[in-house]
Amino acid sequence: MSQFTVRGTFQAREGDRPFETTVDAPNENVAREHTFATFGSQHGLKRTQMTVTEVEAQ
Rank of each mutant, 00 (worst) to 15 (best):
M1Y: 01
S2K: 10
Q3A: 02
Q3Y: 01
F4M: 05
F4V: 03
T5R: 08
T5C: 00
V6Y: 15
G8L: 08
G8K: 11
G8Q: 07
G8Y: 03
T9M: 02
T9H: 09
F10D: 14
F10S: 07
F10T: 15
F10I: 14
A12D: 15
A12T: 14
A12G: 11
A12N: 10
R13S: 02
R13G: 03
E14Y: 13
E14N: 04
G15D: 12
R17Y: 04
R17L: 02
P18D: 12
P18E: 13
F19E: 14
F19T: 13
F19M: 03
F19S: 04
E20G: 07
E20H: 09
T21L: 05
V23P: 02
D24R: 13
D24N: 11
D24G: 10
P26S: 00
P26R: 04
N27Q: 09
N27V: 08
N27S: 06
E28M: 10
N29W: 05
A31M: 04
A31R: 09
R32A: 12
R32S: 08
E33S: 06
H34E: 09
H34L: 02
H34Q: 07
T35N: 10
T35I: 04
T35E: 11
F36C: 11
A37F: 08
A37M: 12
T38W: 01
T38V: 07
G40F: 03
G40A: 02
G40T: 06
G40I: 06
Q42E: 12
Q42S: 11
H43E: 14
G44I: 07
L45G: 06
L45R: 09
L45T: 14
L45S: 04
K46S: 10
K46G: 01
K46Q: 12
R47N: 15
T48I: 06
Q49C: 07
T51V: 12
V52I: 15
T53D: 10
T53C: 00
E54D: 14
E54F: 03
V55K: 09
E56L: 00
E56P: 04
A57F: 00
A57G: 02
A57S: 05
A57P: 10
